[in-house]
Design a protein around this nucleic acid. Structure first.
Lengths: 199, 199
DNA sequence: GTCTATAATCTGATAGAC
DNA sequence: GTCTATCAGATTATAGAC
């Protein structure tokens, strides 16, 4: 269907413009120019500018879902829940920091007026559940899980704000995860990941 | 000086508008209305809209500096560097979460085109140095300090995004700080803050 | 220092021809 | 489905009278 191809191109250019101008800082005219269309013609595909954000939000969450599925499938063989958790956290941090604008749309409230549609929100929920699954499987639940999500969010936030494109915080991910697992499951760990700082 | 009073009022209303509309999402007209002035008259006080953001940025960092100074003065008597660190982290987290818009301006890159002036930036630097001082005094330095700032940033980010106005993540601050100090200074701690999750 | 007037431009969105 | 034409308004900022 040619229609779908046009929609995909519009969304792709909306990402591109958001990456160069800041999330959402593009006009319908600008977007139309990019896809070789008048601004008004965009309304054949999206009823409003906010609907474009929803398409971006959905796509970003589908990418997250896919990324986490692949990482989980790869770890399934081993059957080591600790290693799986470490990998999944690392995968998540890399996913987030690799595209700050996507991270901003998916996890921060920064586009005024944007509310995800029901379908988009369901996909986001699914991706979240899949991401925290391995930690839950280890018995880490709500109060402790909050500290885990905070640490992960912090690594991402610092990486994006203070070393965009680098790995100054990303490379601390394993140490951070080890620290959390030691905090919550002191018995489980004696063998793996001695990333602890030597005194 | 009446001029200074007008400047203060303009900045105060700019904060107010940012809190209700989102950071920076106000027009000069709107701002002028609030202070009983035409939009054009604002240009007698600020050469551009971006200059208003700089005044806000400066004010926010002065507030941070003052807050940290008070907290540090209060802890000076005790002379317990561990307790001081715990308190200072807690103070910082509360300062940040108590005003999400201020946090956004001070610590995230979200206003397109805004770059702090030299003077504002110097104040920001001073506030940062004062905030991390107690951790540095404990011997926690650059690689470890990065993990500390990440954890703090994460608590703030999660609190603001997922429980604005609440304390779901703020109340984890002490546990998080204990965990970090145990990670980096395992010998120093045997007496204090047994906030560790019981097995 | 505040005003009116206005420049110069951008905004999202709709109507209707083809 | 794309276009032209246009609405109805917004935007930051400047010029110059008072």
């Amino acid at each position: 269907m040619r229609r779908q191809a046009s929609i995909d191109e519009i969304v792709a250019e909306a990402w591109e413009l958001s990456r160069s101008n800041g999330l959402g800082n593009f006009s319908m005219r600008e977007l139309g120019d990019r896809v070789g269309m008048r601004a008004q013609s965009l309304y054949s595909y999206f009823a409003s500018k906010l609907e474009i954000f929803d398409a971006m939000f959905l796509q970003g969450n589908e990418q997250l879902l896919e990324t986490m599925r692949i990482a989980l499938d790869a770890m399934e063989d081993e059957g080591d829940p600790v290693a799986t958790s470490v990998t999944i956290v690392d995968t998540f941090v890399r996913f987030c920091t690799s595209d700050p604008i996507r991270y901003q749309l998916l996890f921060q409230r920064t586009v005024p007026g944007f509310v995800p549609s029901e379908h988009s929100y369901a996909v986001a929920q699914e991706a979240y559940d899949l991401s925290v699954g391995p930690l839950r499987a280890l018995g880490i639940d709500d109060p402790q899980l909050d500290l885990c999500t905070a640490v992960v969010a912090g690594l991402v936030a610092q990486q994006i704000s203070n070393d965009p494109g680098g790995d100054r915080w990303v490379r601390l991910t394993q140490q951070a995860t080890s620290m959390l697992l030691r905090e919550f499951l002191p018995d489980v760990l004696s063998h793996t990941h001695s990333t602890r700082s030597t005194t």
